[in-house]
Write a protein that binds this DNA or RNA. Structure first.
Length: 861
RNA sequence: GCGGACGUGGCGAAACCGGUAGCCGCAGCGGACUUAAAAUCCGCUUUCCCCUGGAAGUGCGGGUUCGAGUCCCGCCGUCCGCACCA
């Protein structure tokens, strides 16, 4: 009986051998074609989770295959090491964020090494180290100098207990996610990156990303949100109406400086306008509120609550009549009342709209509430003038009740109104974007310090580059809420680099998305004295294959695209799209185990480690009683369905774990982690090992070219190469199983021995330790990582016999073997002569015969 | 509400261009080996029936075609993203 494959020994042996040979070191000066394979770098939370294992295994298969195919491969790893969890750990456990983070990195690095990934560890980086963030500060200053960084006041979610800004995702039901305090909307001075300068470019660039998922491109397109329309000015009329709840107006005072711009995507519906509305934060609203307590109260009411989506949803449309009216731009005799309305957003367009109730649902709701006129101006083709009830009409059609526009289509109407507005000088065709500039200020300690000094005399002064990096102080405390940098006794006090007077450091740090916006460039080239060496970086970039979770489809990928373009814009690099190929993999899921705890109480969940799972049921180890097996869902701490890869690495070995995460599910879909699945993977590892072990003593010599096994082998080479290219690892694995079965059945022969050697090469990207061990057992020269990828012989890919299906009226009745390329007549004759077919036709001659060469015959009776 | 993806055995899934639906794995059933078990190996496994065969079958209803999982039209369901975006 052959000895079993010993994963502990093999992993140790080959990981040491690869290390000693520096097998995965990427050579900048290699003459070979370059391939940059990258997986999204992890946040060092403490432990590698199954999602990481899946992500990095996929990348590893690509990297190893490319290497075997003769590419110089760059496959690096690093740590997205700044961020809030480190500060939370500091607050909860009294540890320093830096120590906590670096300990986590050490633990996770060991776990990744244990999985045997083909990574170039010499390029490892952590964003929390000054060598990295100092260079980021230099790039920030470059962008500042180029006018792509600016400071502005903006509304933020402010947590009054934790004394910090919260992202929208951190506001839950209007309360801070940590403190539970009611979130306020505050205006704060914040640093911004001018991503909107590149809106058009970022949108156009999506069209060049052929190797990105369509879904991600669409998500980015929607996020950028280009809308074309018209911007025009409303003149405020002299004759003020009597307004509700306002003091007797003085018309001349009211009019002064109160004309305002609106944006619309539907200039064609202008004759359907029945009101105008301003955002509560609009400057005119605010100025009117100074003398109008009713309006001031209304604005205050609108401001209550956070900026989160949940707060906005379902809110009733409300307005406040300002008493002003504006003049309709196409007919000066028409006056429209001006409201301040809660559904108008200051951040989009101009912060003011014209309302056309017949063709916009929100405007219609508003008009019904305030008894404003509703006039249809677009009618569907052939359907003249039905009244509008409670549903606005937004479909296509022709214009009605619109004077010079009558009879035009919607598109023609838009063009006509814009042409007229531009000719008369009261409006212009224009484009607005949903995308906003990127606010990067965070009132946090554990992030890249923004390299700016505030001087009372000189204003905003960049830290001179010679003084970089601005290093985070280590002696900080987290015993009170707020930003420790701001409270630090000395750190922020510096002399102004320009005038030398006492000044103050910026105490905000950069959003961690900045850190991840250029790490792939630093991997390609990471000199000590500058962010990157342009020549070397450009040899590797763009990343050929980038792999990560779809949750980064918008923010990270958009920011990285922007940052790269910004660097190109200031002439530091010629690459504009950082990731040529993108793949978004699915999540790893697991079933849940629970026991009900009575009505209205959440069930009690148990972790997979606490449960003994048999094929049909599961019992709790502690008491031997059954637990309920729940749905297969994303791993989460609250449902306790998280598994730790370490235990599996110990029991089954890296190769079995790697094989399992690649098998069964297509990589873009979710993968259900199961012990049964890993058992299957471990069995396969032993089967392959047994083949290698037996083949070591098998006869060597000349192979039989007609051997069926040889044909299968070459078909498998071709298929697996194509499957890996398309990242269809599940299909590659199904084919490997077929090949393994076929070899097992084949008698010992030189062909069989060669098949085993090739099999080891084909599965080496997935199970590298096993492959090396088998390669050595078979006495092959060197290491399998240095062996060239097998090439399929085209002559062996075509069969000389094919199966011809015979259908009667489209239904399969019989099939037979025929020589490949046999003439139609031969096939037809054979089909008609088959006993089953004669019976099926029941003596009748077929009316029509369809012959598809090498495939089928269909007889139409 | 807008945009998108998906729907195939008990489960994860295959199926090139419209051409034999269900490769491969998991689970299950039967058998061999064994004192026994594990491990391993062999076989079966879409459903139904009047079982040497036949019928139905890829969410539902239509259509195009000699032929549809695949193309077209209309529904239903699930998931994802965005959302008072003017």
């Amino acid at each position: 009986m052959a000895p079993k494959f010993d994963h502990h020994a093999a992993e140790a042996r080959w990981q040491a051998a690869w290390d000693a040979a520096q097998s995965y070191r990427a050579d900048d000066d290699s003459p070979r074609p370059k391939a940059y394979v990258l997986e999204m770098f992890p946040y060092p939370s403490g432990r590698i989770h199954t999602g990481h294992v899946r992500n990095y295994t996929m990348g590893d298969v690509i990297a190893r295959t490319r290497r075997a195919q003769g590419y110089e491969v760059l496959h690096p790893m690093g740590w997205d090491a700044f961020g809030m969890p480190a500060e939370n750990a500091a607050m909860e456990r009294g540890v320093h964020p830096g120590g906590w983070t670096r300990d986590n990195i050490a633990a996770m690095r060991a776990q990744l090494k244990r999985l045997g990934f083909a990574l170039d560890w010499s390029r490892e980086l952590a964003t929390c180290e000054p060598e990295y963030y100092g260079q980021e500060q230099a790039l920030f200053l470059d962008l500042l100098e180029a006018g792509l960084v600016y400071r502005k006041e903006s509304a933020v979610n402010w947590d009054p207990v934790d004394m910090t800004v919260l992202a929208n995702e951190q506001v839950i039901d209007g309360r801070g996610w940590r403190s539970g305090a009611i979130v306020e909307r505050r205006r704060l001075s914040q640093w911004f990156l001018a991503i909107t300068d590149f809106a058009e470019d970022l949108l156009a660039g999506l069209g060049t990303l052929a190797d990105w998922p369509e879904k991600v491109r669409l998500m980015q397109e929607n996020w950028i949100g280009k809308s074309q329309g018209m911007r025009f000015t409303f003149q405020v009329a002299d004759d003020a109406r009597a307004a509700t709840d306002s003091p007797t107006p003085d018309p001349s005072r009211m009019r002064e400086g109160r004309n305002f711009d609106v944006f619309t995507t539907r200039p064609d519906t202008l004759f359907g306008a029945s009101f105008a509305a301003l955002a509560p934060d609009h400057p005119i609203s605010l100025s009117l509120a100074e003398t109008n307590p009713g309006l001031a109260a209304f604005i205050a009411e609108c401001r209550a609550g956070g900026t989160a989506t949940a707060d906005i949803e379902g809110q009733e449309k409300k307005g406040f009549d300002t008493g002003l009216s504006v003049i309709h731009p196409l007919d000066p005799t028409i006056r429209l009342p001006v409201f301040v309305a809660n559904f108008v957003l200051m951040d989009y367009g101009t912060g003011a709209i014209f309302g056309c109730p017949a063709h916009d649902q929100r405007d219609l709701d508003f008009a019904r509430k305030y008894q404003l006129p509703v006039t249809r101006v677009v009618a569907p083709e052939g359907e003249a003038d039905a009244p509008i009830h409670n549903e606005a009409y937004t479909g296509p059609g022709r214009l009605v009740h619109s004077r010079f526009l009558d009879g035009l289509t919607v598109e023609e109407g838009k063009a006509a109104v814009i042409a007229r507005a531009e000719a008369e000088g009261w409006g212009t065709g224009t484009t607005v974007w949903r995308l906003r500039d990127w606010g990067v200020s965070r009132q946090r300690y554990w992030g890249t310090p923004i390299p700016i000094i505030h001087c009372e005399v000189c204003g905003i002064v960049p830290v001179p580059k010679k003084q970089l990096p601005v290093v985070l102080p280590e002696d900080v405390s987290f015993d009170v809420p707020g930003n420790p940098l701001d409270r630090h006794p000395t750190w922020k006090h510096v002399d102004c680099p320009q005038c030398g007077k006492a000044a103050r450091r910026e105490t905000d740090t950069l959003d961690t998305f900045v850190d991840s916006s250029w790490y792939f460039i630093r991997f390609a080239s990471g000199p000590a004295d500058q962010p990157f060496d342009r020549r070397i970086a450009e040899q590797w970039l763009p990343v050929g294959q980038y792999i990560g979770g779809v949750e980064h489809a918008i923010l990270h990928l958009l920011y990285a695209r922007f940052w790269t373009r910004a660097l190109a814009h200031i002439g530091r690099i010629s690459v504009t799209e950082p990731f040529a190929g993108l793949f978004t993999q699915g999540m790893v899921t697991h079933e849940t185990y629970s026991r009900p705890q009575g009505e209205g109480v959440a069930p009690l969940y148990f972790s997979p480690a606490e449960v003994e799972r048999s094929s049909q049921s599961a019992i709790l180890k502690a008491d031997g009683l059954p637990v309920e097996i729940g749905r297969v869902i994303k791993m989460s701490k609250s449902k306790k369905n998280v598994v730790d890869p370490d235990a599996y690495l110990e029991t089954y070995g890296a190769d079995a774990v790697r094989w399992f995460v690649l098998s069964d599910s297509p990589p873009e879909r979710d993968l259900a982690w199961s012990d049964a699945g890993i058992d299957g993977a471990a069995r396969l590892v032993q089967r392959i090992w047994k083949l290698a072990d037996e083949a070591a003593d098998a006869p060597q010599g000349v192979m039989d070219a007609d051997d069926k096994l040889l044909r299968l082998l070459h078909k498998t080479i071709a298929a697996i190469t194509a499957d890996i290219d398309k990242l269809q690892f599940n299909k590659a694995i199904a084919r490997l199983y077929e090949l393994v079965s076929a070899i097992e059945r084949a008698p010992a022969s030189p062909t069989r021995r060669q098949a085993v050697i090739t099999l080891l090469q084909l599965c080496a990207p997935m199970v590298p330790h096993l492959a090396e061990e088998g390669w050595a057992r078979l006495g092959q020269p060197g290491m399998i990582v240095d062996a060239a990828w097998p090439v399929a012989d085209p002559a062996l890919l075509v069969d000389d016999m094919v199966t011809i299906a015979v259908q009667v009226n489209g239904k399969l009745r019989d099939s037979f073997e025929a020589a490949k390329g046999a003439p139609r007549e031969t096939i037809e004759a054979e089909a008609l002569a088959r006993e089953k077919i004669v019976r099926a036709l029941d003596g009748k001659a077929p009316k029509k015969v369809i012959v598809v060469p090498d495939r089928l015959v269909n007889l139409v009776a």
